[in-house]
Design a binder for these strands. Structure first.
Length: 465
RNA sequence: GGAGAGGUGGCGGAGUGGUCGAUCGCGUUAGUCUCGAAAACUAAUUUACCCGAAAGGGUAACGAGGGUUCGAAUCCCUCCCUCUCCGCCA
């Protein structure tokens, strides 16, 4: 799904809870950006080209200049502090009051110098940080280049579109006729785009969750149920912008707290290991998380208003892995293969999209979407997104401070892990695909075989009366 | 929500104003020994940033932020978190 994440400027100073990256000033950044200034400096033309492909316009030259200034100020501050430390060391051996007084005076002057340099340094660090936050991830060389979704590339197709000898209904009609959900009650109680599931609608959701969980457990993923809320800084670490103004913000914030309702378990799964250092031997870590997802759908006014396609709350089973850079691409392919397995197992026709540069969003290095054929969508059926899997390389890990200790220590600091995520099942979208593809001429809907054990029947019929 | 106790390196746990980036134990890694392993012994073992080709040097960090001081893990203030007990509750 389109998570609605995008890059924008972060407000500069904000207090941190704990952890995070520490500068020489002791000042804490809540997050650090995907690309560090050194990388940008060394690869300036490549980064510029990448930003152009991604419709991003960070001021890269300014970043390099700010980094120069940062280094200069850091050196000045460090040297002054070194002098100050020397004076302190002399103090215990100072005998006379005069000696002590003169040491105090000297130290006092240095103290002022340090304070002013530190203030400048802090501002430069804030500016640099803010500028770096606007730089998107680099892009996989094989990802299609293009400005908008029209450049997305279909890389695989699975299943066969149903050939109905009747007029296909859309899921909205099926839900009402079979009494699987109550959208009116949802609107009355919580507002437009909320819903109650009912009857087999409930069983369908639970069955999808079970089916997805069981499949992922079979693939060695650790099952997790996560909180449905998370701190603002975790959202930012994952790449969301919860501090945006209310008109553009994609997530709900909880009044009088620094918490948000999560838009995906990617947030809570990714945040689970923030500020940690893994041993390389423990990687990859593969999780499958269940959560509710809440989205404001800002900017989607008037789109997909019918039925369950675009709602403010839904249930989702999400894959998330922490791994080494070397493992990342293979795991991305594995996650995509699992998504294909899940929807092939459900008997849903779908194709796979390799997302183009302009449509990637900030964190993703490469992204595949599965789009299911939905016979009731549009006038004669259309594809609708059902899953999405991204390789975020170290973009999120940098912001969340997640590193690993390599088996062979190479010197030069600990590398960041790579993170990948992918939808196993987003219940409402999967439900739409099932209802519309499995409908029959008599208005009933067959139950996909793999879900029957949990639903206890093979056909969903209209209720009597 | 109330009361109390705590937050130190991968883990455990010392340390109450300077010689502490931090005793010690465990773990991990390497070496010795061994046919091999274990045990024992020896050594290494936090991280970020800056300078440097490197060797090496500098700065910072003991939950977070601020304060006192020539000097703070250590004293003061604020906040966060964890644990125990009580209350409430699915």
């Amino acid at each position: 799904m389109n998570d609605g994440r995008f890059l924008s400027r972060l407000p500069g100073a904000h207090k941190t809870a704990s952890g995070g990256q520490r500068s020489a000033l002791g000042f804490h950044f809540r997050t650090i950006p995907m690309l560090d200034a050194g990388f940008i400096r060394d690869n300036l033309s490549a980064v510029k080209a990448n930003c152009a492909n991604r419709n991003a316009t960070p001021d890269l030259d300014r970043i390099v200049a700010l980094d120069d200034e940062r280094k200069r100020l850091q050196r000045v501050a460090d040297e002054t502090k070194a002098k100050q430390n020397e004076i302190s060391k002399k103090f215990p051996s100072a005998k006379t009051p005069e000696e002590k007084a003169s040491l105090k005076e000297e130290s006092g002057k240095l103290k002022e110098a340090v304070a002013s340099t530190d203030a400048l340094l802090k501002q430069v660090q804030l500016d640099l940080h803010a500028a770096l936050m606007t730089v998107p991830n680099m892009t996989h060389p094989d990802a299609p280049v293009g400005r908008d979704p029209s450049s997305n590339k279909v890389v695989a197709e699975f299943g066969t579109k149903p050939n109905f000898d009747f007029k296909a209904k859309d899921h909205y009609d099926l839900i009402h006729e079979l009494d699987l959900a109550d959208l009116e009650a949802g609107a009355k109680v919580a507002g437009q785009r909320f819903y109650y599931l009912k009857n087999e609608g409930v069983l369908l959701e639970l069955a999808l969750v079970q089916y997805a969980m069981q499949t992922l457990i079979r693939h060695g993923f650790t099952p997790i149920i996560t909180p449905d809320v998370a701190r603002v800084e975790v959202l930012e670490g994952i790449g969301f912008m919860p501090r945006d103004n209310a008109e553009t913000r994609q997530v709900y914030t909880i009044a009088d707290t620094d918490l948000c309702l999560i838009a995906t378990a990617e947030i809570t799964l990714g945040g689970m290991h923030r500020d940690q250092v893994f041993d390389e031997a423990d990687l990859p870590k593969k999780y499958v998380g269940l959560s509710h997802c809440f989205r404001t759908e800002a900017g989607a006014a008037g789109r997909d208003t019918r039925g369950l396609y675009r709602v403010h709350q839904f249930t989702k089973v999400e894959m998330f892995t922490f791994c080494t850079p070397e493992q990342g691409e293979a795991i991305h392919e594995q996650i995509r293969a699992i998504e294909e397995e899940i929807f092939n197992g459900l008997g849903i026709p779908f194709h796979v999209i390799d997302t183009c540069t302009g449509d990637l969003g900030g964190p993703a290095y490469r992204k595949y979407d599965l789009e299911a054929w939905m016979p009731g969508r549009g006038t004669a059926g259309d594809y609708g997104e059902i899953t999405s899997t991204s390789n975020c390389t170290d973009f999120q890990a940098r912001r969340l401070g997640i590193r690993y200790r390599p088996k062979e220590k190479k010197g030069g600091g600990l590398p960041f892990v790579h993170t990948l995520n992918g939808t196993a099942v987003a219940c409402t979208r999967a439900m739409i695909a099932i209802l519309e593809n499995y409908q029959q001429a008599d208005g009933t809907v067959r139950v996909p075989e793999v879900l029957q054990p949990w639903i206890g029947k093979d056909v969903i019929r209209a209720k009597k009366g």
